[in-house]
Design a protein around this nucleic acid. Structure first.
Lengths: 144, 144
DNA sequence: TATCTCTTGTTATATATTCTTATTATCCAT
DNA sequence: ATGGATAATAAGAATATATAACAAGAGATA
């Protein structure tokens, strides 16, 4: 999906939810939308600085925090990077990521089986899951 | 399992593998073994400093790196913390963690189902997995 | 002993988050 | 509309977390 389409969609979602999609947040959103695969926060910060020299780490992290909460981007915990979610409009799915260690490509996948299996595993221990992180590293089809 | 037993076991594993379980590494190992649940690196560093005032971040991270590679401890990516593995002797299992956000308790669990499901999910995309992170957050049986 | 490798010490730097204060937007009463 | 109260957002500084780079030391091997 194009960056412009994603942006429009995000604007609609924000206005529907009554949250503020400020210029700063939009800016970071667009930076991410134009990015292939995962990006680090400081790489985004460098890009942001080109048009806003006063940007600081907290600036970018706050924006990323907002975008995550809205489900527009996902944080990849295992490599401290961020990736745009290309179907935030559709549903509130749990995130499962396939991360190519060669080229940085990140694929988002959705398996109900996996979700169910994790829930089953937790149940055995009487554990109540609120959210989960599933990140698989390896080599994508292209890089093999 | 007691800290002492774990230590003995780790010593045996190291000598079998021909890797050096230096005093420093042992020390960090024991700190972790005596810990309930997850610990941050800088918390360990503070403890280490009590007997070795010259310890620095790199000191602890190097030791943790070694212990991770040997499978003695696991890093929890989603909270930047470390936890002792209580069955490193048994097998080379993929790690699945249940993390209680209330009390910090971490349970390691092992589901072949889950492993298989993830592999199946990857196969659909022609993705080859080398390793994976599964971390479920929520509330343990005790805290409910 | 000479050499090679692994480990550690030390410093600097990269990455990430928190806290406090200031600013801006929104809402409501006038 | 206008001003004032309130809440959300942003700036800035400080701190927490993690790694890199290089020099020095200790162990193993021949």
């Amino acid at each position: 999906m194009s960056a412009q389409k994603l942006l429009n969609q995000a604007q609609q979602v924000c206005s529907k939810r009554g949250v503020r999609f400020t210029p700063l947040r939009e800016h970071v959103f667009v930076l991410l939308a134009n990015q292939q695969g995962a990006v680090g926060a400081y790489e985004l910060l460098d890009q942001l600085k080109k048009s806003d020299a006063s940007a600081k780490p907290a600036t970018i992290y706050r924006a990323l925090d907002f975008l995550s909460k809205q489900g527009f981007v996902h944080k990849i915990e295992s490599i401290n990077a961020f990736v745009m979610c290309h179907h935030f409009g559709e549903c509130n799915h749990p995130v499962q990521l396939l991360i190519c260690d060669q080229c940085g490509y990140v694929e988002e996948s959705q398996s109900n089986d996996l979700e169910n299996t994790i829930q089953a595993m937790a149940k055995v221990s009487g554990f109540q899951i609120t959210h989960q992180i599933v990140e698989a590293h390896g080599c994508c089809a292209n890089c093999q």
